[in-house]
């Protein structure tokens, strides 16, 4: 079968694609059946993936990433699904969603604090939006974070959270508090 080659591919990405095919075929696919039995991937697969350079690929090197762009993320995600057609490896959430939030919106201190550990696999990240009973209806989010002195006090519950059992970092959604008990937002 002649494979379709994306016009945005180049030599470097083709090398990455080849190495990923070997990596997923040897380090992921043979373990999938056992991972399905146990209900999660092995925790150390995250560290292997980090060492191989496929976590946070589009994060700049100064924050521990591969310094790539979205093409690298696209190749990494595509080859994962092409390897097995499925997988419990939640790198899409970890790298392509969570790392993006921290990189795009985090302060310099936050980027330095979390991204290197996410890139190495030392920390697994999840994003917690959905709550029991909300689904697509985000206006009904009930989780609260109230200022008490200099700290926020968070109460609520989330569900259907990918990487939920293994997450060391959780990006949590909550409605902005009313001005009566929260500092003024910028807009």
């Amino acid at each position: 079968m002649t494979a379709h080659i994306s016009p945005w591919m180049d030599e470097e990405l083709t090398l990455l694609q080849d190495s990923l095919r070997t990596f997923y075929a040897t380090e992921m696919v043979p373990h999938e059946a056992r991972w399905q039995e146990q209900g999660h991937i092995d925790r150390d697969f995250w560290n292997k993936a980090g060492a191989f350079g496929i976590l946070c690929a589009s994060v700049p090197e100064e924050y521990g990433g591969m310094g790539g762009d979205f093409r690298h993320e696209a190749v990494i995600a595509t080859e994962q699904y092409r390897a097995a057609g499925f997988s419990g490896f939640g790198n899409s959430v970890h790298s392509q969603i969570c790392a993006g939030y921290i990189l795009d919106y985090g302060s310099e201190a936050q980027k330095k604090r979390w991204l290197p550990k996410m890139a190495s696999g030392e920390m697994v990240c999840a994003i917690a939006m959905t709550e029991p009973g909300t689904g697509s209806d985000l206006q009904n989010i009930k989780t609260t974070a109230k200022l008490d002195g200099n700290e926020y006090v968070v109460n609520g519950s989330k569900t259907f959270i990918t990487n939920g059992q293994q997450a060391d970092l959780v990006i949590l959604w909550w409605p902005r508090p009313t001005p009566a008990w929260g500092p003024k937002a910028s807009r």
Binding site: G88, F89, N155, K158, N163, Q165
Partner: peptide
């Protein structure tokens, strides 16, 4: 089934 998907409580 090899994805850990969970409830989280705060």
């Amino acid at each position: 089934k090899s994805q850990d998907t969970s409830e989280l409580f705060f």
